[in-house]
Design a protein around this nucleic acid. Structure first.
Lengths: 205, 205
DNA sequence: CTTGTTTCAAACAGTTATGACTTTTTTCCG
DNA sequence: CGGAAAAAAGTCATAACTGTTTGAAACAAG
């Protein structure tokens, strides 16, 4: 990779390569989860996608669960980052309801969400995974709620209405995202989202 | 089981026993899917739950997929039956919105729905399973829509509003059911359901 | 009583995953 | 340049699952 000798005082010795392959492994694991499902994600498949041998992968992560653990951390970090970015980009004075709905809608079709959903479903019947997810999930939920609260100061006069609007949006949109593959019948998403935006505006104090 | 000699004209010779063990196997398979997840459902586990040997199970169903196929058929049949029964029980002149919401809510916490959900998620990355589910799912969705249409004649003047109310209810409630295990934060379900009922009443022509 | 069919049990071969262990290659630094 | 240490590759034992095959009961019918 980088053949320059470690400069004086430089922290990074070439464990940067190690960090880089670690990231490769985590990224490969997430792609496996999205493409193959959690249960079909094996060390072999991860190694193949990462372009490494099994031994190399096992050198960085002693067991499969260690990879999953790292992947969950990575996913939640990225998810919060993406959430913050998407709402920071909303211009002042814009149609907040519409843009916020749009933003969360886009998020729900992103691989990050799909991977986390796949893991959440698998966790229903896997206690070890459930425990790994629980901490990160709790942190995300709190972060999500507080970021939204800060973002919409005009709701501060009515916390109940705020909770209702937030929950309504979240639950409905997640239901819609998931129904993509739990239902054969195609629904009119646009109609539903427009209606949702309307109701959110109505709820605003 | 029944040692009486096959009576004259009687259809059922002791293939009734066969049918009974077939049902046992299907039931055991569904319990496995709910308790262990689709991917951890193996012939061995199914046989154990059914109280049979692997050979016996394999005699009735040549392969695992044949069991799954039968289970999917069984689940959709039961689901439609349960749906029809629950709405037939709604008394005339009652608060339809409330009772219908209540009924679908109950359904979403029933093992039948959990099993189908588990299978639907697994089907995302399993083409064989996807194909098995697709037909039955299509039939259920149509049945569901038409039963609802027949049940609420007062909406017949406005099909658009009907679709909106139906989709809103379905997507929101499914989102809520699923968020039980995808979110750590507990939401106020009662508030959301009450709001939903109110909106459904508003939409009624 | 015997013959053939249906139900169930058990043993077997083939495949695939995991994780421990060993060996080779690469990289760093004196 | 040369040795130490980390990274990567390869090997192995073990375990689990699938589906085939073989064998043994139960039972109806000739």
């Amino acid at each position: 990779m980088n053949k320059q000798p470690t400069g004086p005082g430089e922290i990074g010795w070439q464990a940067r390569k190690s960090a880089a392959t670690r990231d490769q492994i985590i990224s490969a694991a997430i792609r496996c989860i999205v493409d193959l499902s959690y249960s079909k994600t094996t060390m072999i498949k991860i190694s193949e996608k990462a372009g490494l041998s099994r031994g190399a992968t096992l050198h960085h992560f002693p067991s499969k669960m260690d990879i999953i653990r790292a992947a969950v951390e990575y996913l939640h970090e990225k998810r919060i980052q993406a959430f913050r970015r998407s709402i920071r980009e909303i211009p002042d004075g814009a149609d907040m309801a519409h843009l916020a709905v749009e933003a969360y809608s886009a998020h729900l079709n992103h691989p990050i969400y799909i991977a986390l959903f796949e893991l959440s479903v698998a966790a229903r019947t896997d206690n070890e995974l459930k425990e790994i997810l629980h901490t990160a999930q709790l942190a995300f939920d709190r972060e999500w709620y507080e970021t939204a609260w800060d973002l919409f100061p005009e709701w501060h006069s009515d916390r109940k209405a705020f909770d209702l609007a937030l929950n309504l949006s979240q639950q409905l949109m997640e239901g819609m995202a998931i129904s993509n593959f739990t239902h054969a019948r195609q629904i009119d998403k646009k109609q539903l989202l427009t209606y949702l935006e309307e109701k959110v505006r109505e709820l605003k104090p």
